[in-house]
Amino acid sequence: MRIYALIAFFLYFISAGAIAAAEESMASVAITMDDSLSFGGKSPSLDLGGLGVWQVTPVASALAFSQNNPQGGAGDISNAQLLIQKSEGDLHFFMQTGLYSVPVLGKPIVRTLSNTVDTYGYIPSASLSYILDQNWSVTAGKLASMGGYESTMTFQNLNIQRGLLWDQTSSVSYGAVVNYSKDDLSLAVTWNDGYYSNKMNWLGASGAYQLNDKESVGLSWVGSTSGNGQNTYNTPLLQNNSQIFNALYKYDGERWYFAPYLQYTLIPVNGAIGITSQYQTYGAALLANYRFPGATLSGIGHAKMSLPFRLEYIQEKGGTLNNVNSMLYGPDSSAVSLTITPTIQLNGFFARAEGSVVRISNPEPGLGFAANDSKRSQFRMMLEVGLLY
């Protein structure tokens, strides 16, 4: 870890020293961001001559939390990353490297170093994109997965924690995506390894249409095309053999931002790999954000405040009791969650607090909360502060 950190900071300071060679920063960072946070727009750029202009964007944040059932709390780094990209010309490059925490509602919080090592490593994303023309592009590498709405890293999302519906979708896959966009229509097709399984047996497609300057709709499907018996922390047996469908509506107005969506997942019977019962989940979520009027602070910069919140419901159908495999909290279990995350950002600096509660119904014995897995609810408080350069 120490060697990696030294390399990361060395790259950052080298890039900062090269700003004079490329005075203009690139306009955006090639990573999905939701509505409440944005980059400060001051990332150093390096003009490497024939290799083009490259941008290096630091991301740093710390996280603290307290919870009940079980009672506990701690503090840790939530992000210590460099985003490196080239986004000019026909060939684009993007790499995300560093440490990251991925807290999830209703799940134990894993320390950042352990999460990084045990999930997607020190480079959770790296890809090459070829821009064929103004409508077509192809991207290949280690990519954010298609399916669902929320992204993986804390700073990319309205809320600090990932949601109940997100937990049924894959996060990172090796694969390729073909993108097409024209006017108000965007389409994409993907071939990948699903839940980071190293078996290229997943296909997917998505489409989005811009209804007007404030509203859009989208549909997506992604799923396994053949059985895979792998069962690890990164590649859970059930989810890695699933079919995932999503329908999304988005409204982006002057003050309000709404993103309600529906999600359905199906895992068919496959006795050859140990799936002896069909599983399904039905989910609905509302993600929203209210933007307060911003304020310009003399000599400091522009401060923006917002109030994101998320409401979710998910239900599991199928499966059998006393089975080590479950999509949620056992057959016919369900869960509801509410998350509220007041946020303030001043230039690249941000701070946000979060309160969340998860309530589960009809859990299988042993799959609840607390030491004896007997509690049906969990309340969690969080605080995250950081810098998006």
Rank of each mutant, 00 (worst) to 15 (best):
S170K: 10
R2G: 02
I267F: 06
Y209V: 09
N68E: 11
N289V: 15
S333G: 07
P365V: 04
G330V: 04
G253D: 04
L83M: 09
G283H: 04
A188M: 12
D252Q: 14
G49R: 06
S220F: 01
K107C: 00
V357N: 12
N362L: 05
P124K: 07
R380I: 10
L99V: 12
G366F: 11
Q134S: 15
I344C: 11
A21K: 08
L46G: 00
G147V: 05
S173P: 06
A259K: 13
S129V: 00
Y120C: 01
P293Y: 13
L203P: 04
M26S: 06
M95G: 06
A371W: 01
W166D: 13
G75H: 06
E150D: 13
N246F: 05
A272C: 00
F309Q: 08
F13G: 13
A295G: 02
R291S: 14
A21W: 10
E316S: 14
T343G: 11
A205P: 09
V385E: 09
S220T: 09
Y174I: 00
K182R: 15
A8Y: 04
D133V: 08
H302F: 13
F350V: 10
Y122R: 01
P103A: 04
G207S: 12
Q71L: 12
S186R: 10
Y389A: 08
Q210C: 00
V102D: 08
Q161P: 01
N323T: 09
L307W: 04
P70T: 15
F65T: 13
L388A: 09
P108Y: 08
Y149E: 14
K86R: 14
L48Y: 06
A21P: 00
S306E: 08
L48W: 09
N68Y: 08
D252H: 09
A60P: 01
L367V: 03
T296F: 12
N240P: 04
S206F: 01
L338A: 12
A126V: 15
T116K: 11
T232R: 10
I77M: 12
G299Y: 11
M146T: 06
Y261A: 02
L297V: 12
P308D: 13
A144E: 11
T296N: 15
F309C: 09
G72Q: 05
I14M: 10
T320M: 12
Q85M: 03
P331D: 07
L165E: 07
N289D: 14
G194I: 06
H92S: 11
I7M: 07
W221K: 02
W191A: 11
T235M: 02
G163L: 06
L338E: 03
